[in-house]
């Protein structure tokens, strides 16, 4: 119970205000959104570094469950030192609060380790459209994301973010990013 500013209470008078009155009645929760609904909301949260794909496309949302009134979302990092991980957790929390879920806890889950096998089909297609070759078990891109030529060579095993490598197309001569396969 907050004190009203400027009000002086008389200490001699016993305070018999019913304490329970200060506590708002417990609000019945509306129907809890289904896991599918929550995943659909999260599918609108973009990856901060590759905004054409969502955090769900990336395969890093590993589980959602209710712990009492708290929604627990477990997120797995892509690379252990990826600086985007913290931003992603904040973005997820903000998105769920915007949908009216006030009590959200983000937990980090490292096992089993993230793999590019968890990228969604939608995500892979969007990467390609965006000019990033999607991961391939062969260890390199199948084709140039710009002109579809398979005449491609590696420039470097690393790129502008931990998840990418740099390649070049020998036909259209454009460099492009390749999403590393791990």
């Amino acid at each position: 119970m907050g004190e009203v500013p400027g009000q002086v209470r008389d200490a001699a008078v016993p305070d018999d205000t019913p304490r329970t009155a200060s506590r708002p009645p417990r609000r019945d929760l509306p129907v809890r959104p289904s896991p599918d609904q929550i995943m659909a909301w999260l599918d609108a949260v973009p990856d901060p570094e590759i905004p054409v794909i969502s955090v769900v496309d990336l395969g890093i949302v590993r589980g959602i469950r209710w712990q009492g009134d708290t929604l627990e979302v477990s997120v797995t990092p892509t690379y252990s030192g990826c600086p985007a991980t913290r931003v992603i957790s904040m973005d997820i929390e903000t998105a769920l609060r915007d949908r009216g879920l006030q009590d959200v806890r983000i937990t980090t889950q490292i096992a089993p380790p993230w793999t590019t096998d968890w990228l969604s089909e939608k995500g892979r297609a969007r990467l390609q459209d965006y000019g990033i070759a999607p991961p391939s078990p062969a260890g390199g891109p199948d084709r140039c994301p710009h002109c579809s030529s398979d005449n491609v060579t590696r420039i470097s095993q690393y790129g502008s973010t931990p998840c990418k490598a740099q390649w070049r197309c020998a036909d259209c001569l454009e460099p492009f990013d390749y999403f590393k396969c791990i």
Partner: peptide
């Protein structure tokens, strides 16, 4: 430049593992 980026990414992985 490519080596600079490669070294920085390697360092980043190692620091991430350090946190764990």
């Amino acid at each position: 430049l490519e080596e600079d980026i490669a070294l920085a990414n390697t360092a980043l992985d190692l620091i991430g593992q350090t946190q764990m």
